[in-house]
Design a protein around this nucleic acid. Structure first.
Lengths: 338, 338
DNA sequence: GGCCTGTGCTAAATCGATTTTGTAAAGATT
DNA sequence: AATCTTTACAAAATCGATTTAGCACAGGCC
């Protein structure tokens, strides 16, 4: 009941192992194997059901045909959609994917990268978290194929794919303006990631464009390292102190969900007392009455573009990637919270 | 800038490669390597930062030190918690985990198993879906280490770990009775999985125990293959036709969420018009006003027990596993929907 | 002194592929 | 006819580890 090896196939076909290998790897022409022989080999392969031993191939070629996907949290709908699309695309190209989550643990990111390095993944797809900067820089320096998603580090010359954050917030703000809201608060969090500063910049810009004076009091940054409870209290206080607001823009879906809870506690109903809009969709936003308006990320687009960029790096030693910093437009999903 | 190999280390330490291997694998005593030599080797290893090439080790030993985790859906909180716990436990034991989701695709499950087989995982952790029965049977016949979670097939002698479904529903029903509810509906789905029939059996039994006549009309099975919209309509009709119900028991969290939407559409509020309880918790149940009562699965317990059972199979060729069909008690989480 | 038994390691085989090099036979060239 | 090419494969090296078999030397025993 032992595994069929290339040698066995060779013996069955009456040829040398190398010949079988050539045929199986499409090098029959190049190695001028007669069609006759090639066909005989293919016959034996097909009806014996032989499949190459991936580990052996990996050892010999140095290619694991495996990609590493490192995300913040393995739960969360963002990851779920991302993973699905990436896995499908990867499989189509003959690659496997291993997932890892940093679970918001700064140093775990680095460990994971090293772990995957040992495991010999051929390339990395990463949603960067604060603290992973150096590890990612190292990967780039070692010329390992990497594509960042959802965020990036301005100092590192790695390809990335993400939503156009500035444009996304603009969409949301325009929608709020259209609906007549003018006193718009903004809730963010103090992580130094580029997407958050972009969103904030867009919020300020949007106000300016409408000639609404920007008031610092209407903006709050929750503390990333605080507990959920602390953040909730913080947010509740912010809303209570800004009774005149007619709408709140939440910079991430985590914040938005927190917002729903805070508003619930304050017995403020949407959109009567307060309109709510959130960057990044979430299952809950569809279900939670009355439905939360949001800016949806083009997750599938991000995933497939990221794979494409990674493959370009894997395929050959082509020169520096050009046009490898991609932003894709988000989509406004209007529900009844605005 | 090439990778350091065992040979390099051997040369640096002035010994043979085999000697280094013995020392690194803790066989120094057995192979009577002098402490002196062993220590010198360890010195070289430590300060050179050598790490064995996993692929080569894998090829030689036939052990990939990798486990395959096959779940229905890679989103979903059940999977998220499961994956986290399993990954942590596995890492502690020196194993990696690759995830795969069947995405409710009957035949994809089989493909995955074969795919992982090719990839040479050492063992399988599977949450069985309908249609995977034969593939799982094959695994067991081939004496591949397998542990099933969340469900099992009565005909297959594979170890499994799952919540005590009967007891869980009982907990929920007792809670409903205690709160004074007597007209209790039951919503299930027509998948032939053991956990669903167990839950249903428990529902019927609980009614009998309270001497409440079981009425078929109060129970509905949605069609697994219907679309979300169809199911929603089906559920809405069920509720409309059972106006006299004062509580509904949903057999899975997917059904529960659907129920929330249906009740929302019918403008029925919980628990005033209808109490709601659901088997298996979900993020949304915590947030959705007024909070949904549910039976929580002991996910971490399931995960760690499953790993333990798998390791027992991996460790040695010990005889037939005894006490390998495990059920763990669930926990009632009371929120304001009851 | 010859034979046996431990020591303490090294040499070589092995895992299952890929890839480079080698080679016999047929055909082309001078 | 002798030499060179080309054809069509086979043989052997290789990837980086583990593991089995082997081997030199020291000491003990008869």
């Amino acid at each position: 009941m032992k595994r069929l090896t290339l040698k066995d196939v060779a013996r069955m076909a009456g040829v040398a192992p190398s010949t079988v290998s050539f045929v199986l790897n499409g090098k029959a022409k190049q190695m001028r194997i007669r069609d006759e022989v090639a066909q005989k080999i293919m016959g034996v392969v097909n009806q014996s059901g032989y499949e190459p031993h991936r580990v052996a191939v990996n050892l010999r070629t140095g290619q694991s045909k495996t990609l590493g996907l490192i995300v913040e949290s393995i739960s969360g709908s963002f990851f779920a959609s991302l993973a699905r699309t990436i896995e499908i695309e990867a499989e189509r190209l003959g690659y496997n994917v291993v997932y890892c989550s940093t679970e918001n643990n700064a140093e775990k990111g680095g460990e994971l990268i090293r772990m995957l390095g040992r495991q010999m993944v051929d390339g990395y797809l990463i949603t960067p978290a604060p603290g992973m900067e150096n590890d990612i820089r190292r990967l780039v320096q070692m010329h390992k194929p990497v594509v960042l998603m959802d965020s990036y580090f301005p100092g590192i010359k790695a390809p990335y794919v993400l939503i156009d954050n500035f444009h996304g917030v603009q969409l949301g703000m325009d929608h709020l303006f259209e609906k007549g809201y003018r006193k718009i608060g903004y809730v963010s969090v103090d992580i130094s990631l580029i997407q958050l500063s972009e969103r904030q910049r867009s919020y300020v810009q949007a106000l300016r464009k409408m000639e609404i004076p920007f008031r610092k009091k209407r903006m709050v940054e929750l503390n990333y390292h605080d507990s959920r409870e602390q953040n909730l209290a913080h947010l509740e206080a912010f809303i209570r102190e800004n009774r005149d607001l007619d709408a709140i823009f939440f910079a991430t879906n985590y914040l938005g969900i927190l917002g729903l809870e805070a508003l619930g506690r304050l017995k403020l109903s949407m959109p009567k007392h307060m309109a709510v809009i959130c960057f990044d969709d979430h299952d809950i936003f569809r279900l939670y009455p009355p439905g939360i308006t949001c800016i949806e990320q083009p997750i599938e687009g991000i995933a497939s573009k990221a794979i494409t960029l990674l493959m370009k790096q894997l395929d050959k030693q082509q020169g520096p990637l050009k046009e490898s910093q991609v932003t894709l437009p988000g989509k406004l999903i209007v529900r009844s919270s605005t």
